[in-house]
Nucleic acid binder design. Sequence first.
DNA 1: CCAAAAGTGTTAGGTTTACACCCATGT
DNA 2: ACATGGGTGTAAACCTAACACTTTTGG
Lengths: 233, 233
Amino acid sequence: MSRYLKQTRILVAVDCIIFGFDGQELKLLLIQRGLEPLKGRWSLVGGFLKENESLEDGAAHVLQQLTGLQGVYMEQLYAFSKPDRDSVERTISVAYFALIDLDQYRQQLSEEYHAEWVSLRGLPDLIFDHKEMVAEAKKRLRYKAALHPILFELLPDKFTVPQLQNLYEGVYDSLFDKRNFSRKVLSTGLLVKQKSKDKLNSKKGAFYYKLDKRKYNAKFHSFLNFIPNPNKF
Amino acid sequence: MSRYLKQTRILVAVDCIIFGFDGQELKLLLIQRGLEPLKGRWSLVGGFLKENESLEDGAAHVLQQLTGLQGVYMEQLYAFSKPDRDSVERTISVAYFALIDLDQYRQQLSEEYHAEWVSLRGLPDLIFDHKEMVAEAKKRLRYKAALHPILFELLPDKFTVPQLQNLYEGVYDSLFDKRNFSRKVLSTGLLVKQKSKDKLNSKKGAFYYKLDKRKYNAKFHSFLNFIPNPNKF
DNA sequence: CCAAAAGTGTTAGGTTTACACCCATGT
DNA sequence: ACATGGGTGTAAACCTAACACTTTTGG
């Protein structure tokens, strides 16, 4: 293979903003950095792009290494490229955000990486421009969730409507009317009511629902308007 | 400065999908490639990222070199990274799309680059994965224009409502009801009616409008819903 | 005077919001 | 029996879409 002459080759990294929901609040999966410099400081999960990998592959590898999970929802967020963003060497980083069902992932939290789920409020300091990346990811998540049923990716297979509302309220840091919320959600036809109830969060119990995968895939790109007054956000 | 050891450094390019509107239809600014291989084949405008440049800077430089324009609307589209996407050498390319007022740019079309405005229907073959980039850019433009007043960036300072509708109809390849369209558009409060009329396109003449820059900036990120039945698209 | 494009109003249907009470059950 | 959270209905305001006729003027 020939090459382009006299051009600068640059390190390319992938960083993943991994959101999870524990039923109460939104969390981020962070690690304590393993290499010097800045060893021990909090950081997003990431890695350098390998010779024969696409960015999508790279992001999937990063996630799989850390969580063991595959087939997780992931989306390219943005390519960050300020020349001095990495203090060691010039690196551009393409950030991806991932949504994972925190329940499905209770395994070893890869001791090896000192990974932890950290509440989105009160994040610790992060290295480089990772804080900016997280801010962008939050913005994008809010934007997208206002229009598309993306937040289901954060929930387990079976979930209740109050749980779902809780999640939306967490993401938008507001309270929604439960009558309007459940009507809107159910009217999409995306949910299939189950016979069983979740009895953990109330005495009466709340019915479980499952996603109708077929309709979910079909309507994923439709504009659905789950939250009231979206222009407030 | 120290460096990361044993990591692969990769060529990083910036490619720009430049949309323009000539009053009739949407066009793309393409060039005939200057370097071998594939010399003379149609290509997006692009360049390699320089040592001390951010991607945003790189994209702005590319655009400025070709058109002489600055301060143009631009947005990062996506980082394309298939290992074999460039047949010469592995390169990742971060694509940006730009919207420019074709009138404001009637100058030399930089003979030097063999640039041309090409109609979006019936594009020629493009090198590498540039066709895919264009397809993504079209998708993004439609998506975004359904929600935000982004298409004004393609119009001259003064424009008429029928011209604006024309543009929307071009982007969505459909016809909209002019009564509903003008009501929606005017109800945003974004437009300021001028005294003068455009008499080129009709005998009666159509009033010119200008953007209220203040309100435009304020409402740019609001959800505005300019087109009917957005879920059709 | 005619063709061509601009401009404008109404109504019906649907969607969104605000709001309050009853239900089931574990303690 | 009571506290807790789950579940449901209605009416008013608003928004969207469908639809047709009049105006202006250059040729």
